[in-house]
């Protein structure tokens, strides 16, 4: 709290020179934002910090690295690994497919209604996640799902006989892509809209081919928004549990499901190991964001 009141003085000194006015305005200034900060600290920051600190404590409350070290056991490492793989695959597939769709509807010369219909649908589909999404994919690609049955009947191709399983890495990835693609579309379309028509014309008069223009201007300009969205998609998939849980029960051992089981019943028989798992999740999504911020400040000096 001390540093808040410190910056408080600095601010008030700048905006309200008269001394008496300052003493009057100080509390009211902060009163306006106090509920927000109290809420954020109590229900967002402190609970997270509590877990992060708990990850470095033992039952006796002493500082330790044992919990972190215990993450190295094979089942937990495997859970992290499959989570990272699913998140990475679904965010990359979602990102590139979403980008392709966004470019197609904005720049592809398609009728206007396709653009608005796609955007509306993307708004819906990006929020259609969780348990119902799992149901939809079970009805599609489950053993009795329509696509499975039709492929078997019409083409004679039994995807389950060829190693596919909805309760697997690819099954989960394919399901996550259902909300990843539209999320990408929703976020990246404004960025593509921001590309000015004159840039392409200027490049053309300067002798550039379409490919050169894309390589030298379009991709560098879209890149920061694109990368930022990929990071968002990654975090989105990494923390998701409902879809996976409803889809696979606990047969696919991803980190959030492991943590869920731990919270419900201390399956790891070590309360502090749960903290360490949560800590690891924050570290991974946090690292992704740090990487993004670092990359952006390093290579995108042209951004205001």
């Amino acid at each position: 709290m001390t540093d808040i009141s410190l910056s408080d003085h600095a601010v008030a000194g700048k905006t309200a020179p008269p001394a008496d006015a300052r003493s009057m305005r100080l509390p009211t200034q902060w009163l306006g934002v106090a509920p927000f900060f109290i809420f954020a600290i109590m229900f967002l920051i402190l609970p997270t910090l509590y877990l992060m600190l708990g990850a470095f404590r033992n039952d006796a409350g002493e500082f330790t690295f044992e919990n972190i070290a215990a993450l190295a056991q094979p089942s937990i490492v495997a859970a992290y690994w499959i989570s990272i793989k699913v998140s990475l695959a679904s965010s990359l597939i979602g990102a590139f497919a979403g980008l392709a769709i966004a470019i197609a509807i904005v720049r592809g010369g398609l009728p206007e209604w396709i653009r608005s219909a796609t955007l509306t649908f993307s708004g819906v589909a990006s929020n259609f996640a969780g348990v119902p999404l799992a149901f939809a994919f079970l009805a599609t690609l489950g053993r009795l799902g329509l696509a499975t049955v039709l492929l078997n009947v019409l083409v004679g191709f039994n995807i389950y006989a060829h190693g596919f399983n909805i309760l697997s890495f690819w099954g989960l990835t394919l399901t996550y892509v259902y909300f990843q693609i539209p999320l990408m579309v929703v976020i990246i379309v404004p960025a593509i809209d921001g590309l000015k028509k004159e840039w392409g014309e200027a490049a053309a008069t300067l002798g550039a081919t379409q490919a050169q223009f894309w390589r030298m201007v379009v991709i560098p300009v879209i890149w920061p928004s694109f990368l930022g969205t990929v990071i968002l998609l990654f975090a989105n998939a990494f923390g998701a549990i409902a879809t996976a849980y409803a889809l696979t029960g606990s047969s696919l051992n991803i980190v959030p499901i492991l943590l869920y089981a731990q919270i419900r019943g201390d399956v790891l028989h070590n309360a502090h190991l749960g903290y360490a798992i949560a800590f690891g999740m924050i570290v991974i999504t946090g690292l992704a964001n740090v990487f993004y911020i670092w990359f952006r400040t390093r290579s995108e000096r042209w951004l205001k």
Binding site: V33, G54, T285
Partner: peptide, 28 residues
């Protein structure tokens, strides 16, 4: 002048998974 701080905080729930937040609630 507080805008960056507030924006950062409002974006945190996209970074911190819901399951972690609720885990913190249960313990706190």
């Amino acid at each position: 002048q507080l805008r960056p701080v507030v924006e950062f905080i409002t974006l945190l729930p996209l970074v911190i998974p819901a399951i972690v937040i609720v885990f913190g609630y249960i313990r706190m």
